[in-house]
Simulated scan of single mutants.
Amino acid sequence: MVSKPFAVDLNKPIVFQVGHLGEAYEKWVHQPIVTKDGPRFFANDFCELLTRTKWWVIPLVWLPVVCWLVCISTQRGLTPTEAALAVVGGIFIWTLLEYCLHRFLFHIKTRSYWLRNFAQGKHLSLSTSWLPSQAPFGWATPCFSPSRYSYSVCAAPALFGGGLLGYVTYDCTHYYLHHGKPSKGYGQILKRYHLNHHFKVQNKGFGITSSIWDHVFGTFPATQVSDISR
């Protein structure tokens, strides 16, 4: 008797399900999930609470931290111009980190049950109706540690603040691209570009806030979807 292939039940928590998809994982991970409130991740209510935050909480919590970090740099002797350049540098570093995380972690090709659950959980959590406000805590350490030792003590806080500002921009932009309806301008271009990645060419177009690194690393898609109504 041939057993039926495993299918994810969206009426149940998806974490610990997707790891069982086997060879069907690559196909499933690129399908749109349309639910009113987004899929539930965990059966445990406390764990589920930690994965969900209203979109506006992200800038509300982290933008004051960005300002505080920049103030530290100016108090340590950086001029406003130097602090601004450090922030821009941090944003630039973030765009590369954003690209690498999306390409090599969220789209990791693995047979590992646990890695599939983790990668898909993070990928989905940033495109549903809520956002994880705790994410900067996990990403701050690898971002901040190099800045402490690679740059002056004065510039390090502003540099990290720029990276954090880049993260906030990325998080809110990603949410908007999935739930907003831009009719023209750069927002429309970004939404078309991102939906092209999700629904047409999943191995291209890994940039969220910018396509610069897709151009640099040769992953800029040759074609774009014309319909951005999803």
Rank of each mutant, 00 (worst) to 15 (best):
G38E: 12
P39C: 09
P39S: 12
F42I: 14
F42P: 08
F42R: 11
N44V: 15
F46T: 13
F46A: 10
E48C: 10
E48T: 06
L49Q: 09
L50E: 06
L50Y: 03
T51I: 07
T51F: 09
R52E: 14
R52C: 12
R52S: 13
T53H: 07
K54Q: 10
K54N: 08
K54P: 03
K54G: 05
W55A: 15
W55I: 15
W55D: 14
W56P: 02
W56H: 12
W56E: 05
W56Y: 13
V57N: 04
P59M: 07
P59H: 04
L60Q: 07
W62E: 06
L63G: 03
V65D: 05
V66L: 04
V66P: 04
C67P: 02
C67E: 08
W68H: 09
L69Y: 05
L69D: 02
L69Q: 05
V70T: 04
S73D: 08
L78K: 01
L78S: 01
P80E: 05
P80D: 04
T81K: 02
E82K: 11
A83N: 04
A83T: 00
A84L: 13
A84F: 09
A84I: 07
A84H: 07
L85F: 09
A86E: 05
A86Q: 04
V87K: 05
V87N: 00
V88M: 08
V88E: 02
I91V: 11
I93K: 06
W94F: 12
W94H: 06
T95I: 00
L96Y: 06
L96Q: 03
L97Q: 08
E98L: 12
E98W: 14
C100A: 08
C100R: 02
L101P: 00
L101H: 03
H102C: 10
H102K: 09
F104Q: 06
F106Q: 05
F106G: 04
H107N: 04
H107S: 06
I108K: 08
K109H: 09
K109M: 10
K109C: 09
T110R: 03
R111G: 13
W114Y: 09
L115M: 08
N117M: 12
N117Q: 14
F118S: 06
Q120V: 13
G121P: 09
K122G: 11
K122I: 14
K122Y: 15
H123P: 04
L124R: 01
L126K: 14
S127M: 14
T128S: 15
T128D: 15
S129I: 15
W130I: 03
L131E: 06
S133P: 06
